[in-house]
Structure formats: C-alpha cells, structure tokens
C-alpha cells in the first residue's frame, strides 16, 4: 500500500506523543504485574500533566477531575470507565486489551480526612476487584489546598488508626515524595491487598500582582 516503517522508526515516532514510549509494552503486556506497572507509570504521567496545569482544574469537581483522568487513560490504550458496577458504582475501573486484567480506584477531593476515609472504606468494603487474587487498587487524592504532603501525612496517620488487618506501609518506587503504598487484608477476602495512594496537587493561588488582582483567585 505504501512505504514500510521499521520498528526503530516507529518506536522513535511514538515516543513523541504522550504515553507513546510505552505503547508496545502496553499492548503486549502478558502478565498482571506488567499491566499494573505500566498503568502506574501512565497514571504518574497524567498526574504530572494535571499538576503542571492546576489552573485548568480549579472549577472541576471530583467527577470532572476523574473524567479527565479517564479520557487520558483511554488515549493511552486503556479502557477506562467511571461508574462501572461491581459491588457499587466504582469511581474508576481500568482494563487493558487482554482479558482478565483490571484495576479499580476511588477518587476523592481532599476536603477533610473523613472524606478520604469514606473513599477508602468504599474501595475496600463495597467495591470488588474483578479477581481478588489480583488485588491491587488505587486511591487518587485530589488536593486543592496548600501543603499536600502534610495532608497526605495526616491521611497516613489516619490509616494507622483504622484497625486494618496486617497493615503495612511501603514507599512508592516511582513517586516516593507524593505517593505511598499500603498492604492490608480486607475482611471480605483475607487476601493481602495493595493500595496505591496517589496525591494530585492542584492548589493554585498566584501571589504576584496580577494574581492578587484576579477575581477568580479571590476567596481561595
């Protein structure tokens, strides 16, 4: 039909689009571990993109922010849906093209510790993974307030108070400053379940002269 493209040329061109450098890995992932590892990288990219433009997200509510994440995951070869039902209406369900791999997440704007706690309880007591043997889930915590690390530390402290069975904490290997992992055994499965808690820092209040004058930042 037309001239052929070598794998080297193809891979180099793909690396120029968001998520494209991992395209071949993503569509050829053959194990759950590969799928999850790539998904975490892709979510990291999306979070970086959101954090680089916090002004774009000031008027978005929880659903709006999660729809944004969902659309960008779809563009990167995933099926992602908001409100899929499995025990309840899950905030975000992500699958790959290969049958059997899926990941669920709860997304919350950090309005209070109680709100994040509610999200975590929904994730672990209401929703169900497609396969409890492949129990890795996520918490996306959108933070529109100052001091996101301090707030995530508060959240870590709250988890310690929640009587979760066999709870342990691990650093996140790819976002050690802004994410962390917990492992605990929910009572419905007794299977060690990994939760990746990712903060998305969206605080935006410019203090320069035009920022101080802008109506849209007043009252924040």
């Amino acid at each position: 039909m037309s001239e052929r493209q070598t794998l080297g040329e193809f891979h180099a061109a793909m690396a120029s689009v968001p998520g494209g450098a991992r395209f071949i890995e993503r569509i050829s992932a053959s194990s759950f571990e590969q799928f999850i590892s790539l998904l975490h990288e892709d979510i990291n990219d999306i979070v970086r993109e959101m954090e680089a433009n916090p002004d774009h997200h000031q008027n978005s509510d929880e659903d709006g922010l999660t729809y944004f994440v969902e659309a960008l995951l779809k563009q990167r070869s995933y099926r992602a849906s908001k409100g899929a039902r499995s025990g309840g209406s899950i905030d975000l369900t992500v699958t790959g093209r290969l049958e059997g791999f899926s990941w669920i997440a709860e997304a919350k704007i950090f309005t209070s510790i109680a709100a994040v706690r509610e999200g975590f309880l929904q994730l672990h007591t209401r929703y169900r993974c497609a396969d409890i043997e492949k129990a890795k889930v996520g918490m996306l915590v959108y933070i529109k307030r100052e001091h996101p690390r301090r707030l995530m530390d508060e959240w870590r402290g709250e988890l310690k108070k929640m009587d979760l069975i066999d709870l342990s904490f691990l650093p996140c290997p790819t976002r050690p400053q802004t994410a962390f992992l917990t492992i605990h055994s929910p009572t419905h499965s007794d299977i060690a379940t990994e939760t990746r808690h990712v903060s998305v820092s969206l605080y935006h209040k410019p203090l320069d002269k035009s920022g101080r004058r802008a109506k849209k930042y007043k009252g924040r």
Binding site: S2, A13, S16, S77, R97
Partner: peptide
Amino acid sequence: TRFQQLARENSLTKDPYLSQRVVQYLCGAD
C-alpha cells in the same frame, strides 16, 4: 505511512504526530 497519507488526504496536517496518537488509541482497549 498509510495513515499519514490519509491525514493529508483529509487536510489533517497541522500536527506531525496525529497518526501516532490515533494508532495508540485505536490499538487500545476502548
């Protein structure tokens, strides 16, 4: 290159990486 040719035929030439983004999506699960 066939997709890049299609983009030209449809006057979709502003972005040199349009085909790459579309392929990444159309090969995906959605």
